[in-house]
């Protein structure tokens, strides 16, 4: 039996529930994993668990999405060039706070758009040169249309979605694949305590499974639960004169 040596999968935001679930799914298929997060010490337990369960190499790397100046150094410092880069970075923030405090709003915009887009752009350049690679950006259904409840977060995600779309268009003929993931509700630490409708809420493992399958199938844009495609289609098609008076 021969096994091809697989290129590592880098997870930006490797400490999040969704990041870990995606990492587990790739590790299960035999991929070495690099978990990148701000505080890698906290990740040691998860790192060891993943390596033991799947018998693959799992390492950690320190990464701060707001520290854009350090990004080239981060990429250069990786031991192996990743074949797949997954960004699950994001921060919802508090809409009220983001409305009142420009600093807080800027932080949400940077964490959901500027940082993820810049780092994906840098990996894109590296992959374009190599002629292969996969970029997975976890964006959000909140980016499909701005709503009063979360438009600061949503607008940043909209930016990220558009960025990924452009990147896909640019790299389609260069052997580099770009996948955009819009999870909808996911039962994670971030959403703990929220009363989410069961039929619309995915478990992190489900996201991991869907992302893995979508990468294998070279899908372009996926909603984790397909019902979200329909929901967002309806939300997008409401005329603005009506939409502006609705509270969603």
């Amino acid at each position: 039996m021969t096994t091809a040596i697989l290129d590592p999968v880098l997870i930006l935001g490797g400490g999040s529930d969704i990041g870990l679930a995606i990492a587990h799914r790739f590790a299960k298929a035999g991929y070495p994993i690099v978990l990148a997060a701000r505080d890698v010490e906290k990740l040691e337990g998860n790192r060891a668990d993943m390596a033991l369960r799947h018998n693959v190499e799992v390492t950690t790397a320190t990464f701060d999405v707001l520290d854009t100046a350090a990004m080239p150094g981060f990429i250069a410092g990786l031991d192996h060039t990743p074949g797949t880069v997954v960004s699950v970075i994001g921060a919802m923030g508090e809409q009220d706070q983001s409305e009142a405090d420009p600093e807080a709003a800027a932080m949400v915009m940077r964490a959901n758009y500027e940082g993820p887009a810049l780092i994906m752009g840098m990996f894109a350049a590296q992959m374009e040169e190599a002629g292969h690679g996969v970029l997975v950006g976890v964006s959000s259904v909140a980016g499909d249309r701005g709503r009063a409840a979360n438009y600061i977060y949503g607008s940043a995600k909209a930016g990220f979605t558009a960025f990924l779309s452009g990147l896909r268009n640019r790299l389609a003929k260069r052997g580099v694949h770009v996948l955009t993931v819009k999870p909808g509700f996911v039962a994670t630490r971030m959403t703990e305590g929220m009363d989410l409708p069961k039929a619309l809420t995915a478990a992190p493992e489900e996201v991991g499974e869907k992302v893995f399958d979508a990468v294998q199938a070279r899908r372009n844009v996926i909603y984790v639960r397909s019902i979200w495609w329909l929901i967002m289609l309806i939300i997008r098609s409401i005329p603005e004169r009506i939409f502006k008076k609705m509270s969603l």
Binding site: G45, A48, D49, L52, R53
Partner: peptide, 9 residues
């Protein structure tokens, strides 16, 4: 169930 990590082997 969330305390479900393998630690060493």
């Amino acid at each position: 169930r969330a305390l479900n990590r393998m630690i060493s082997f």
